[in-house]
Computed example of a mutant assay.
Amino acid sequence: MNETEGTLAISAHPSPGGPVVLRLAGELDHHTGARLGRAVEDLLHSPGTGAGIVADLSRLHYCDSTGITTIITAHDRAQATGSSFCVAAPSPPIAQLFRMTGLDQLLPFHSSVEDAVAALSSN
């Protein structure tokens, strides 16, 4: 899956025997949030996503309240299906936003994609 619409690019990259890395680049906002929600739902209903989803935010440079809600919903949906969802490598502005809103206390955060993949692979 590779999609570009508006200013958000989403691509899925399975890791061998582990979670799917969902790379986000651009802006996650009220125009693009639904696309992320659909991508997560599609992955949760696909074979081979049992180890979970790692959202790589290293190239995400903007996120509004809709984007935050979409990330929370993705985490909740993953848990409801018996899977996992975590956030990895947020860019400095996104990391600051998540600290200010307390999202970093609500969801599993990892400083790198590699750390996140290792954490979900060991579960």
Rank of each mutant, 00 (worst) to 15 (best):
P90N: 06
H75Y: 14
A34V: 13
A89M: 02
A25T: 08
P90V: 11
V113R: 02
S91Q: 07
G48H: 03
A25L: 05
V20M: 09
R38A: 13
L8T: 05
T101I: 08
L57H: 00
L36Q: 02
M100W: 01
H45Y: 04
R23P: 05
G17K: 07
V20F: 10
L36S: 07
Y62L: 14
C86P: 00
D64N: 10
R77F: 12
L57V: 14
L8V: 04
T70K: 04
L28C: 09
I71D: 00
C63I: 09
G82M: 12
D115A: 14
R77E: 15
L106G: 03
T7C: 08
L103T: 09
D29P: 04
P108Y: 05
L44H: 08
S84P: 03
R77M: 10
L97D: 02
P16Q: 13
D104T: 15
E114P: 00
S122E: 14
L57C: 15
P19K: 00
G52N: 11
S121G: 14
G50H: 05
V87M: 10
I68Q: 04
Q96V: 12
G37H: 02
L107S: 11
T101P: 04
L97F: 06
D115Y: 01
S112W: 04
I53L: 13
H45R: 15
E5D: 13
V87G: 00
A39F: 02
L44N: 04
C86V: 06
G52C: 12
A25I: 02
G50D: 15
Q79S: 15
A74P: 02
G67S: 06
D76R: 15
P19S: 07
A80G: 14
D42I: 00
N2K: 10
H61K: 03
G6N: 13
G50Y: 02
V21P: 01
P14A: 06
P90Q: 11
T49E: 10
N2C: 09
S112P: 07
C86S: 12
N2L: 11
L22D: 03
E27C: 09
C86A: 14
G6H: 14
T66H: 08
P93H: 01
H13G: 01
V113D: 00
S112E: 05
T7I: 07
R23G: 08
S111W: 03
H13M: 08
S46L: 02
P92L: 06
G18S: 15
